[in-house]
Amino acid sequence: MAETKKPITIAAIGDIHVGEANAGAHREMFREIADRADVLALCGDLTNLGRPREAEVLAEDLHGIGMPVLGVLGNHDHECGHVDEVKAILSHAGVRFIEGEHCVVKGVGFAGVKGFAGGFDSRMLDSFGEPAIKAFVQEAVNEALKLESALRLLETERTVVLLHYAPIAATIEGEPAEIHPFLGSSRLAETIDRYSVTAVFHGHAHHGTYAGRTPRGTPVYNVAAAIPKDTGRPYALLEV
């Protein structure tokens, strides 16, 4: 008889934007999460400006959390050009970054990328015209290809994707229409729908909508800290 796969609970949050003056601001929340979940997923914009000291502040709050922590970075984490140092500091605090990579935790597969902009569905930006436009579109394509490479290597029955940018338009509803093309790209959803994915978490759209689905029905959750969630807390909880 096949062994029953034990469900696990994932806590997911993005866009906490830790600043240098935020020491201790998230410590109690992380302790609470450790009591309620098996895995913590961090969906980008972990720091406000990508400064090493901001990463150190977050690392101090994560210290001793005692649970697996997986993450991807966001656009804010890239702002100051210290990405490698920010990742090193947070990795030392126990965060495993899975951008373009995969891992298995408690029987569940995880894959992730930051993602990129470009718009959604029939209004997605095409690679046409000036070299700058083609480079912009290629960045979105490259992120989707990195996600595909990670998903291809997972053979788990349950698979979760972590992103920063949104893969669908439904979870950015509530944001000004003028900025929708800069909040994500359907190229991510196209990749996700080629695989059997259980759930997707993303951030970036602070005024968006909590839940939606890809064209093939995969649940997508916008876990930006400011988004109201059914937990009543800044983080989401999902059993898979």
Results as ranks from 00 to 15, higher is better:
16 I>N: 02
189 A>L: 07
30 F>Q: 11
157 E>I: 09
154 L>P: 12
149 S>I: 01
182 F>W: 10
199 A>M: 06
7 P>K: 12
91 S>L: 01
93 A>C: 06
121 D>G: 14
235 Y>C: 00
99 E>D: 13
100 G>C: 07
85 E>L: 12
107 G>D: 05
24 G>L: 08
193 D>C: 11
236 A>R: 08
227 I>F: 05
18 V>H: 00
220 V>S: 05
119 G>K: 03
23 A>W: 00
172 I>H: 08
187 R>P: 02
77 D>C: 10
107 G>Y: 06
2 A>S: 14
1 M>Q: 14
166 A>H: 06
39 V>N: 01
204 H>D: 08
30 F>A: 11
142 N>E: 08
183 L>Q: 06
2 A>P: 15
194 R>Q: 15
72 V>Q: 10
16 I>E: 04
191 T>Q: 12
114 K>A: 01
180 H>A: 06
189 A>Y: 04
4 T>N: 10
132 A>Y: 01
67 M>S: 01
98 I>N: 00
172 I>W: 09
133 I>V: 14
206 H>T: 13
95 V>K: 06
140 A>V: 02
32 E>R: 14
109 G>Y: 07
18 V>S: 00
74 G>E: 12
84 D>L: 13
48 N>S: 11
85 E>R: 15
199 A>H: 08
42 L>I: 09
20 E>K: 15
17 H>V: 07
90 L>M: 11
68 P>C: 01
173 E>P: 00
82 H>D: 13
114 K>L: 04
173 E>A: 12
217 G>V: 06
63 H>M: 05
92 H>F: 01
101 E>Y: 01
168 I>E: 02
229 K>L: 12
22 N>S: 13
148 E>C: 02
72 V>E: 11
21 A>S: 11
223 V>E: 04
56 E>M: 14
173 E>N: 05
76 H>M: 05
16 I>M: 11
31 R>N: 15
3 E>K: 11
53 R>T: 12
124 M>A: 08
49 L>Y: 08
39 V>D: 01
57 V>K: 03
50 G>H: 10
195 Y>L: 05
86 V>H: 12
214 T>L: 04
176 P>H: 12
89 I>T: 10
53 R>I: 12
185 S>G: 10
